[in-house]
């Protein structure tokens, strides 16, 4: 592996690795450090690396690094310090409650089991299909589906009051529509 190859691999995969660790930990600094170390390790192991499997390998190395390090230093979960949602895609009401909603999601994500969180965020933020997530994490599509529905269930429990008015809104709009008709 030449320096060029390495730089190419870095540009292709660094962001994914960093996001993956960030989804797991919710800690930006840790995510950056671990992603950096992952690539360092990739360079050290350059002699026995096959390009076809490099992505799965990167996530695996990152996981290993994360697990060994995370047990040493447990840090604060802080997702929205780094991630900025697009306000304009939200409903007007959600836009109004943007800050509140952010806080609620922060709490909900924080209390969500890590494995579900990773799957959930890969699907929501990166808009990856279940099949793609399954491939990258080396899991079955079934497992991804399961984690995803558990994640949504968890959010539903955590965001009870935050969705209630959305539900109301939907209900009223349904009623309106019916009324109109």
């Amino acid at each position: 592996m030449t320096r060029e190859d390495f730089n190419f691999l870095f540009h292709t995969h660094f962001e994914e690795v960093r996001k993956y660790v960030f989804y797991r930990s919710g800690d930006e600094e840790l995510a950056t450090d671990i992603a950096q170390d992952t690539f360092m390790r990739l360079w050290e192991k350059r002699d026995d690396i096959r390009l076809e499997t490099v992505k799965g390998l990167l996530l695996k190395m990152a996981t290993d690094l994360y697990i060994t390090r995370y047990h040493k230093e447990k840090r604060a979960f802080n997702f929205f310090n780094t991630f900025v949602p697009r306000e304009d895609a939200l409903t007007p009401e959600d836009q109004l409650n943007y800050e509140e909603l952010k806080k609620a999601y922060e709490e909900a994500l924080k209390s969500m089991p890590e494995k579900q969180r990773v799957v959930f965020l890969m699907n929501r933020v990166d808009e990856l299909k279940y099949r793609e997530i399954a491939e990258q994490l080396g899991l079955s599509v079934k497992a991804i589906e399961k984690r995803m529905s558990l994640a949504l269930e968890h959010l539903k429990q955590q965001l009870k009051d935050k969705v209630s008015h959305i539900v109301l809104l939907i209900l009223t709009s349904c009623l309106f529509r019916r009324f109109k008709n």
């Binding site: 900025v84 909603l101 999601y105 929501r124």
Partner: peptide, 11 residues
């Protein structure tokens, strides 16, 4: 809601 909330966000 979560789809709208997370999709297209920036890091």
């Amino acid at each position: 809601q979560s789809k709208a909330f997370f999709a297209g966000g920036t890091f």
